[in-house]
Amino acid sequence: MATRSKASLIVAAIVLVSLLSSATVAHGRRLVRSYDEPCMEMRLYLHDILYDYSNSTANSTSAAVTKPTALSTAVSNPGYFFGRMVVFNDPMTEGKALPPSLEETAVRAQGLYLLDKKDDFSAWFAFSIMFNSTEHRGTLNLMGADPNTATRDISVVGGSGDFFMSRGVATLSTSAVEGFTYFRVQMDIKLYECYV
């Protein structure tokens, strides 16, 4: 009887160890998790060119998909467009310069933002960064509030490919603004959970 219970304990221990090891290994990679030091860092610039009927459709990378609401025109300060939703497919670069071809960049941001404040420019983002280069393949998924402050953080909530199940934070800062049609955002991305 003692031999049988000892064997059962050994089998249970083996099952537990295999479950724990499989929880930290996925797709042949091992999970690296640290809350002190990021396992990966990168800086990218998002270039958004909003189509507003006055600029070219060829170089526009985003479009408002809602008209200003009655509430936004009645109570919003001019230009804040409370309730507007914008869908984008923006090029992203490692440097500040716009790429020569807006449609053929190896890194793109695809998603939407909602203008969510009546008396100031403030937005809520939900988008994926799509990587298709020799250096990285896959996506990073980000979402969060984008208030009108010098820097703000949004969450990296997951990913795929080289960024499988990544978690972290992206610190945003507005790098350039030209009227209501162009803005450039610097994104300092730090991942604290990575599969390597």
Rank of each mutant, 00 (worst) to 15 (best):
M1Q: 14
T3L: 02
S5C: 05
S5A: 02
S5W: 01
L9N: 08
L9T: 13
L9C: 11
V11D: 01
A12G: 02
V15Y: 04
L20N: 13
S21K: 00
A23E: 01
A23S: 13
T24A: 15
V25G: 12
V25Q: 12
R29G: 03
R29I: 01
R30W: 00
V32M: 15
R33Q: 14
R33V: 06
D36L: 10
P38L: 02
Y45P: 06
Y51L: 07
S54D: 08
N55A: 05
A63E: 04
A63V: 14
A64E: 05
K67L: 14
A70I: 00
T73N: 10
S76R: 02
S76F: 00
S76N: 01
P78S: 10
P78N: 11
P78A: 11
G79R: 06
V87D: 07
F88R: 09
N89I: 07
N89F: 07
N89Q: 09
N89K: 10
T93D: 08
E94H: 06
L98Q: 08
P99E: 04
P100V: 09
E103Q: 15
E103F: 13
T105V: 12
T105M: 12
A109E: 00
Q110K: 13
L112D: 07
Y113W: 12
L114M: 14
D116S: 14
K118T: 00
K118H: 00
F121W: 01
A123I: 02
A123Q: 05
A123C: 12
F125S: 04
F127M: 12
S128E: 11
S128P: 03
I129K: 02
I129Y: 01
F131H: 05
F131P: 02
N132S: 15
H136L: 08
T139M: 00
L140Q: 08
G144D: 06
A145Q: 08
D146A: 11
P147G: 01
A150L: 11
A150H: 09
A150F: 10
T151M: 10
V157I: 08
V157M: 11
S160G: 13
G161H: 03
G161R: 04
F164S: 12
M165V: 00
M165K: 12
V169T: 03
S173R: 09
S175G: 04
A176K: 05
G179R: 07
F183S: 03
R184V: 10
R184M: 15
V185H: 01
V185C: 01
M187P: 03
K190G: 01
L191M: 11
C194H: 10
V196T: 15
